[in-house]
Design a protein around this nucleic acid. Sequence first.
RNA 1: GGAGGGGUACCCAAGUGGCCAAAGGGAACAGACUGUAAAUCUGUCGGCGUAGCCUUCGGAGGUUCAAAUCCUCCCCCCUCCA
Length: 404
Amino acid sequence: MLGVKEQMEVIKRGAVEIIPEEELLRKIKNSIKSGKPLRVKQGFDPTAPDIHLGHTVGLRKLRQFQELGHKIILIIGDYTGMVGDPSGRSITRPQLSYKEVRENAETYQKQFFKVIDKSKTEVHFNGEWFSKMSFQGIIQLASKFTLARMLERDDFSNRYSKQVPISLHELFYPLMQGYDSVAIKADVEIGATEQKFNLLTARQIQQEYGVKPQVILTLPVLPGTDGVQRMSKSTGNYIGIDESPKQIFGKIMSVPDDLIYPYFELLTDVSSEELKEIKNDLEKKEKNPMDFKKRLGIKIVSMYHSEKEALEAKKEFEKVFSKKELPEEIPIYELRYEKPKIWIVKLLTMTGLVSSSSEARRLIRQGGVYLNGKRVDDENLEISVEEEKVLKVGKRKFLKVISA
RNA sequence: GGAGGGGUACCCAAGUGGCCAAAGGGAACAGACUGUAAAUCUGUCGGCGUAGCCUUCGGAGGUUCAAAUCCUCCCCCCUCCA
């Protein structure tokens, strides 16, 4: 096991706050002395079935704790998932059914272990304790906190002042998360900065239940591919770690240039010297940001697939978008049509390339439809059904149409 | 229980009888440009074989030549008082 100083250095990298830092020092010291690893907790609510790069910021930190010899406790919030975390939210989250949550949890676990080491991880569903909690227990838990303190949160107070509804069950979320820490006796809990309130509430709840309070460690929130909102599945600005190499690479390339540095910092292992260099180069603007993005894309795809696939994805990207050639693999559509000729608009809607014929006409007018590499400029074009053809809609949609 | 304010397209939001398929912004999509699925600029953004029609402003009825807009009932949200 590494010494206190060395451990702290690893732990502090990329962290925003450690509260209280002295307490963490003490805990690590004790852990080294006693040989007992720290219990480091992070919870995830399985609201959407996919883990994306935003989740990996925390998971990677857990991984580092593992490498330092500590115990990771992963809480899968099957019960908290039914409430929905109000953190950073301006509206009530849609409530999920228990069944949905359990199904998502399955997928989650598979993906977790692409980042962290399964053999050194303890997994709990918080239903383990919440499903057994009596109403009496709930009253007891609720009595540990006051409304005034709850309303200190700016997400709640914003909603309240903007007259956006806050349901009572949402108030339970921080209490439940706190109780998780009681149940598993967490020494450290990590979470994104927007989790600070929940994380701090847990400290208080732990003390109320006679458990030593945890140290909290916050990490930056990862912006999504739009460069503005936090990465999340519901806003559609995410990159899932289970996506194909091509998709991950392509999405990295579509990220605004400003995100290049934060992504390198939060999502990859590049050394701090290398990071500095990247920052300098980006600021000087002498080098092409595209090349940094390619490097980033290769790094990230390599982590979740392989280096070989990463290089292939890069090649494919250059082929399709830089050279504007046809991609390596094009999906095939088998066309069944009773007449020898088919109207182009009809074909586009039939194949699902566009959702309505108005849209098809619009795209043709805008010059976004290609047939066998030639731009289609006639909305009334009739094309032969027999002949094999390749359709391109916009920059990214390709389809090979063959007659069935 | 009483009083008042609201519900408009994917999201925010304007519209209080016809000029409303509905301003503006965001998102999305297309094109141009390039350094890329970045940035910027331009355009599109309910549906229908494009031609005028059809469907849409919380829901159901009604008034009117004409309703997002007026009337009735209902549902939902917010605020204040109790």
